[in-house]
């Protein structure tokens, strides 16, 4: 990442795209504290998050999912949800919220099933709602559409819009251009660790530099 700067609009769904290895996941890692930036700032609610530990950032209301789903395979669905700590609420309330969230994505009947025994799509949903346990304000989704069938994807997207209606800010990294172009209001394009373009979908689709980054220079 080098001199890359962007402002994510609050309460909107934004997309972060770019060719493989352009630094999208690295951006997420920097935002969530898994990587510490050697320079620069991450401003969230007027506060610099750079250099904070992941759990501290998490407790400020920033959550994420991973490109390849990372749930706790040897824990049950409910335990996965309750492994989230730092909610500042009593156990009973946490449990109730966990139950609500797994019902929200229709996993209620699987609450005692081990994570490793869910289908990939179900694991993805579980990871998604686990990220919602803290009632976060900024949700970072790393390739939500990858490896998910159409029906499930539609579910995920519906949930995403419902969250946005509740005033949440969402950023997605995605290779599926349909998802990006139809669901994001603002798009950031990265290549080799720098931002090469930014704008609404229609603008991005026409942008010369973006086309070049994806398909190479036209001769």
């Amino acid at each position: 990442m080098d001199g890359c700067s962007f402002v994510v609009p609050r309460g909107k769904i934004s997309g972060l795209i770019g060719p493989n290895g352009s630094g999208k996941t690295t951006t997420f890692n920097l935002l969530t504290g898994l990587l510490e930036p050697d320079g620069g700032q991450v401003i969230y609610n007027g506060e610099n998050l750079a250099g904070l530990k992941p759990y501290q950032i998490f407790r400020k209301g920033v959550t994420r999912t991973f490109q390849v789903t990372r749930i706790f395979r040897e824990m049950t669905v409910l335990e996965n949800m309750l492994s989230v700590t730092g909610l500042g609420v009593p156990e009973r309330v946490a449990r109730q919220r966990a139950e609500e969230l797994i019902a929200f994505v229709n996993l209620g009947h699987l609450r005692s099933e081990y994570g490793g025994r869910l289908s990939y799509g179900q694991q993805k949903l579980l990871e998604f709602v686990r990220a919602l346990m803290t009632d976060p304000d900024l949700i970072l989704l790393d390739e939500p559409a990858a490896g998910v069938n159409r029906t499930l994807l539609q579910h995920l997207l519906d949930h995403m819009h419902r969250l946005q209606e509740q005033g949440k800010t969402i950023v997605i990294v995605e290779h599926d251009m349909n998802v990006i172009m139809n669901h994001c209001e603002r798009i950031f394009v990265m290549d080799y660790g720098v931002k090469i373009a930014e704008g609404p979908p229609a603008e991005i689709q026409r942008d010369e530099r973006v086309v070049e980054a994806y398909f190479g220079r036209r001769r």
Partner: peptide, 9 residues
């Protein structure tokens, strides 16, 4: 790593 982003210190 996942534990960290689940808010675990």
């Amino acid at each position: 790593e996942v534990a960290m982003v689940c808010g675990i210190d």
